[in-house]
């Protein structure tokens, strides 16, 4: 057993192995809290297009480093006098944007790869899995750093790097889930009608493993938020003046001795978002596979 094989097995315990049909579904606290947080973030991001308390990029040196609640600045201002709440609101856009695209990239490449491995077996499966073994051990941040080095830093580099780094995870999860579906009788039946493998994968396998993929995508979203924040903090993600939570933390570092709240709010925004997506992932899993939740 290769190293990552075992990891996936452990991961699998946290994910529905097969779609649960007709089980009693329960909406747990995880789903409610996670759903509420994520909706809150989405709402904030959308709202920021139309309204923020102040112009998030407006520099007003006279208003710099204001405390919480001063002159209508609910969370205070930063060293340029920009309103922190407005920055965080607009930063939510950046976070969601990068998350959606990074997870999108991971799914668009990872699902076909995993599906291919499951459908074809043999050397194709072997090479896909070996490749993802190598990639699996390679942290997303390092890949992003390399990519920034080659392409220059920026949101696009960060997004591609995070997305590509998660491809092996998606590929492995897809393969694992698809293999069990491929072994079921109705797939054998479909094959006996002479249906092609691609058709079978799209028509029969994909709908059956979609719940696994949704859960995985949610968890990856949380990871992507963390990775983006770290990259922006290093100056390798969103470039100024685009507001980004990670970037705000980097800028706050210099002034943190003067005003700790500068570092607290963007960090809290990150942590709450990650908790939100993680809880949502757990909640969806519990909802889709109550048996597994009970076991856990």
């Amino acid at each position: 057993m290769s190293v990552t094989e075992a990891v996936i097995q452990l991961d699998d315990e946290d994910q529905p192995a097969a779609p649960a049909g007709g089980e009693r579904r329960k909406v747990g606290a995880n789903l409610i809290i996670g759903g509420a947080i994520v909706s809150g973030i989405v709402f904030t991001a959308l709202l920021s297009f139309f309204w923020t308390p102040f112009d998030p990029t407006e520099v007003a040196i006279s208003d710099r480093l204001m405390g919480v609640g001063w002159e209508g600045h609910v969370l205070g201002t930063d060293h340029f006098g920009r309103d922190i709440l407005s920055q965080i609101m607009v930063g939510a856009r950046n976070t969601l944007f990068i998350g959606i695209l990074a997870v999108g990239i991971a799914l668009v490449i990872g699902v076909p790869l995993g599906g291919l491995a499951a459908a074809r077996r043999g050397w194709i499966e072997e090479s896909v899995m070996r490749l993802s073994d190598v990639m699996y051990a390679f942290p997303a941040i390092l890949l992003a750093i390399l990519l920034s080095a080659a392409r220059g830093p920026g949101t696009t580099s960060a997004m591609i790097a995070i997305g590509v780094a998660y491809v092996p995870i998606v590929a492995r999860v897809t393969r694992g889930a698809a293999l069990s579906v491929f072994q079921t009788d109705y797939i054998a039946a479909a094959q006996s009608y002479g249906r092609g493998r691609t058709y079978i994968f799209l028509r029969h396998v994909l709908p059956n493993i979609s719940s696994v993929l949704i859960v995985q995508a949610t968890v990856l979203f949380a990871l992507a938020i963390l990775a983006e924040a770290a990259l922006s903090y290093l100056g390798l993600g969103a470039q100024p003046p685009a507001p980004s939570w990670g970037r705000s933390l980097f800028e706050a570092q210099t002034f943190i001795r003067l005003k700790a709240s500068l570092a607290i709010f963007p960090g809290l925004a990150i942590a709450i978002s990650v908790v939100g997506f993680n809880l949502l992932g757990d909640g969806i899993r519990d909802y889709l596979d109550p048996k597994l939740a009970e076991k856990e």
């Binding site: 706050a252 001795r257 942590a271």
Partner: peptide, 23 residues
Amino acid sequence: SQVGISIPAFWAGLLLTTYVAVK
């Protein structure tokens, strides 16, 4: 552990410097 997972390591670092070291 859920909270620990959700905290960016560098943020934890920033807060630790601010409170444990500076304050």
